[in-house]
Design a protein around this nucleic acid. Sequence first.
DNA 1: TTAACACCTTACCAATGGGTAATATGTTAC
DNA 2: GTAACATATTACCCATTGGTAAGGTGTTAA
Lengths: 113, 113
Amino acid sequence: MRDAQDELFKALADPTRRRVLDLLAAHGDLTVSELATEFPNLVASGISKHLMGLRAAGLVRSTRDGRRQIYRLEPEAFASALAPWLAKYEPYWSAALDRLRVLADGGEPGQND
Amino acid sequence: MRDAQDELFKALADPTRRRVLDLLAAHGDLTVSELATEFPNLVASGISKHLMGLRAAGLVRSTRDGRRQIYRLEPEAFASALAPWLAKYEPYWSAALDRLRVLADGGEPGQND
DNA sequence: TTAACACCTTACCAATGGGTAATATGTTAC
DNA sequence: GTAACATATTACCCATTGGTAAGGTGTTAA
């Protein structure tokens, strides 16, 4: 685990892991099985491996509940790895983000993507 | 080029490419040779390959000046791929970014990282 | 205590990716 | 025109990675 920023972007490189993070960000706590139902084209051990990766990167944390393992986002680690990089590029993304927010205010409510 | 967001995060996964983007964001226009001097442990064709990758992802653009190739950031593509993802996680990073900004105001001036 | 369950771990495979070396292409300088 | 230059392209190597399959560990239920 050399650099947190490195770990973060390596974790974000895979669409499955990004989706896992999305789900955890949206729903809070989720078990492995609950996550697995969102990836029907993937075998259980595949999910597990991705979760291990995210845990190794410090982006998620897991606790045990009986025979189930509950995963949740680790917001501080996530944010503290991301923020310095974001700060460098703020002039580039801030305007685009503002435009998105305006669209979201005027448009139909619901999930964005 | 299936998804712009996918291309973006795949491009950001490599530290060399992130550094190239950093340099372009900081200095504006740079030739391949100028970029190459920042990576003494890398052979010229290696840089070229990374630049091709960034160009394929639409994150940089290149123009010709005689026998030199000038690369620059493509801010709109960069921002428009990043913004929707950022919006989803805004609650997570915004506080950390605020803290960074406060530190930057009170601390010594210079490059952040 | 035995069976089903939830998840992890390991072994293995094919594909991708970052790196170099060598070769091509186009451009300025001589 | 020929040589040096700047960059791109190709071929190749090795490490990493995403995926599956199979087996292991601990836990609840019967």
